[in-house]
Design a protein around this nucleic acid. Structure first.
Length: 425
RNA sequence: GGAGAGGUGGCAGAGUGGUCGAAUGCACCGGACUCGAAAUCCGGCAUACCGGUCUCCGGUAUCGUGGGUUCGAAUCCCACCCUCUCCGCCA
């Protein structure tokens, strides 16, 4: 949510900023609502002040044992007018709030303008795509040959976009998550957290716009609970409605969790394989910082996610998303894209965003600054990384001509020292 | 599932219809004392919003949430949510 004060004071700048990401702010509606709000609020508060003063007088008269009848007659008329004003003001504030909540975040000045993913900017590239002396297979073929990935059984159980993993491949999946968590906690200073995989609508609305994105979530029938689409939902909400002591900042959390996404609207996309699933594991990084630190923290967090790819020897590139391709709440986003030989393309494996105060404002997540004033926190998060897609990348990049898959050395200690996954295994 | 207790400021914890935004303690910030620190003493210290003559002044709202009663509600009534304790059941 944007700052309504900023809209009042710097409307032209806000309009300009939003225009960069292709969002046309309805200025006329906003100004009309604001004008109405102002007059109604002033009127209502005046009435309240009159009533409060009168009631206070009655209290004083009573304590002195004096007659209160004339004083009470005086307030009698206020009630109805006040109630009408309060109701109208409440409705108007709801309207204004609704209007405000559906406005996306303003992109930072250093975010390139653009309409779609085609306009994203590659900021760096790491590793070399391996050249194969045989035709590389995709992860589905590799996994099925190893009897490690079983989509048939998964679809019997739960339909499409699910997978069953077995044996060494299942273990590899677990190893990847362990490795990521261990790296982030031991080397990057994150605190490991375990969290609920369902959250209430208030938490969901804190990090994103529930009204806008509820179709992407799985809802628990008859309960105000949603399966989390990312650990960002529970973890960022740690600080909802709280005032954090500045001494505790920055907060850095790493969380391994499953993620559940309905993938509504992606019919026909990535049907084959494990790229796009209703359920996948992810290690999420979350940082909660002061505003001055957020830009640096965003770079740092992105580097932490990149470190995982480097340690796993997976070629990737870092993309700075353009204004048109960023998520609703983000002010700036880097996507990490890993090289997939079978697709002959880079595919997203992590998304690292700085939300600045956008989420914090919705969540009322604040801290006390040096001057003793409460100020909104900045929130940053990123995948570090998506576990399923990381496994896909390993299977494809480390595949051998005989159908076996070499295990990246960083993971071997999590695989009882095994150097590869063999067909026979 | 049964029975009970309770939700008040950053935290702990008083307050059962009238200057209560709320005692007290802790924490925190300033000052005094000190070579410095501790201890002690003095002062300050909730949040959000609105208006204005906008580093200040005035106003409104907020005691789990939403309704109700009343001139007036933290306090009374109703509903809901949540937490805790005990019993039962169970991974």
């Amino acid at each position: 949510m944007l700052d309504i004060q900023q809209l009042r004071k710097e409307l032209p700048q806000v309009v300009e900023g939003l225009k960069r990401r292709g969002y046309a702010l309805d200025e006329a509606t906003f100004c009309a609502l604001e004008a109405k709000r102002k007059s109604l609020q002033v009127k209502t508060e005046e009435l309240q002040a009159t009533r409060n003063a009168a009631s206070r007088q009655i209290g004083i008269l009573k304590s002195k044992g004096l007659d209160t009848v004339p004083a009470m007659a005086e307030v009698a008329g206020i009630g109805d007018a006040l109630k009408a004003n309060e109701t109208a003001l409440g409705a108007l504030q709801d309207q204004l709030n609704g209007f405000l909540r559906q406005i996306p975040n303003i992109p930072r000045a250093d975010v390139p303008a653009g309409k779609s993913a085609d306009d994203n900017v590659e900021v760096r590239r790491w590793g070399k795509a391996r050249t194969f002396d045989f035709a590389p297979k995709d992860h589905t073929d590799i996994g099925e040959a190893l009897k490690g990935i079983d989509f048939e059984t998964a679809s019997k159980l739960s339909g499409s976009r699910f997978s069953v993993l077995r044996g060494q491949v299942a273990r590899l999946h677990r190893a990847i998550a362990q490795f990521m968590l261990d790296t982030h906690t031991a080397q990057h200073g994150y605190t490991e957290v375990y969290v609920p995989y369902m959250v209430g609508s208030e938490s969901a609305d804190g990090v994103s716009s529930l009204a806008k994105f509820k179709d992407d979530l799985f809802k628990i029938e008859g309960r105000d609970l949603y399966l989390i689409p990312t650990a960002e939902y529970p973890v960022t909400n740690f600080v909802r409605d709280t005032i954090v002591d500045a001494k505790e900042l920055p907060l850095k959390f790493a969380c391994h969790s499953p993620c559940f996404r309905s993938e509504a609207g992606s019919y026909g996309k990535d049907i084959r394989g494990m790229i796009r699933q209703h359920q996948f594991d992810k290690v999420e990084l979350v940082q909660i910082v002061t505003p001055e630190k957020s830009a640096d923290a965003h770079e740092e967090l992105t580097a932490h996610a990149e470190a995982i790819l480097q340690k796993l020897e997976l070629p990737y590139r870092t993309m700075l998303l353009c204004t048109g391709d960023m998520g609703f709440s983000s002010a700036k986003t880097y996507d990490l894209e890993v090289w997939l030989p079978a697709q002959n393309a880079y595919r997203e494996i992590s998304s690292c965003s700085n939300f600045e105060a956008f989420q914090a404002r919705r969540m009322m997540a604040r801290f006390k600054n040096a001057a003793g004033k409460t100020e909104l926190l900045h929130t940053i998060n990123g995948s570090g990384l998506a576990v399923g897609r990381t496994m896909v990348a390993i299977l494809e990049n480390f595949q051998n001509a005989d159908g076996s898959v070499t295990i990246p050395s960083a993971l071997r200690c999590y695989m009882a020292g095994a150097a590869k996954i063999d067909l026979a295994a």
